[in-house]
């Protein structure tokens, strides 16, 4: 039996179906936390931002007109909630464009920032390296790469989320991935 689509679940939620809420949360909570993480670098803050966003979304879900996908609408609110947390905590990372790709030093875990749990043995060293390098990319690149390559959003969806143009998304992906590749290659040579 096929899973109900988002619109069906939203209708059921509006009709008071608690299971529909659980299903929508289960479907999108991981992505929401990852998007918040790409802004915040801190797991606890990312969970807080995701929680805040979900509450706003479900309290205002009657205003969701369905012109875009539910996920795009949700991610946009998550992204804004994360920016809000960042603003409150002054957790702006790599704010200045083009002034060095790593304005921080050392291991993120050493700074109390987000580090993936180390209990997943299957992860290769290369994946860890990619994650670390992505974490150190300037914000504007890190976000679009996360949205495209990890969350699988289209250019149009990313442009809508970030209030920018499709051409800008394309450009950021090009420069961001080029920079990321150079960082990875440089570290693999060490």
């Amino acid at each position: 039996m096929p899973e109900p689509d988002d619109r069906t679940l939203i209708k059921r939620f509006l009709a008071g179906d608690r299971d529909a809420l659980d299903e929508l949360l289960r479907r999108y909570r991981g992505e929401a936390v990852r998007i918040a993480l790409s802004v915040l670098h801190n797991e606890d803050d990312a969970f807080d931002a995701a929680q805040e966003a979900f509450i706003k979304v479900f309290r205002n879900i009657h205003k969701f007109g369905g012109r875009s996908r539910f996920s795009t609408w949700l991610y946009r609110i998550v992204y804004n909630a994360a920016l809000d947390v960042a603003r409150k905590k002054r957790r702006y990372v790599n704010r200045t464009e083009g002034k060095g790709e790593d304005q921080r030093a050392g291991n993120p875990a050493d700074r109390g920032e987000y580090a993936p749990p180390d209990d997943r043995l299957a992860r290769s060293e290369k994946e860890e390296l990619v994650r670390r390098c992505l974490d150190e990319l300037p914000f504007k690149y890190r976000v679009v790469i996360t949205l495209k390559d990890i969350e699988g959003l289209s250019y149009d969806e990313i442009a809508e989320m970030l209030s920018t143009s499709r051409g800008n998304v394309m450009s950021r992906l090009y420069y961001g991935r080029s920079r990321l590749r150079k960082m990875i290659e440089a570290r693999m040579k060490r």
């Binding site: 991981g30 290369k126 994946e127 992505l134 390559d149």
Partner: peptide, 27 residues
């Protein structure tokens, strides 16, 4: 690189995700 990024996505802990769902539902 795209393939590596897709497989290197951070996975928030299942326990924390469950707590997130519960907190949202309670709110």
């Amino acid at each position: 690189l795209k393939a590596l990024l897709a497989s290197a996505a951070p996975e928030p802990s299942a326990e924390k995700l469950e707590k997130l769902s519960a907190s949202v539902a309670a709110a």
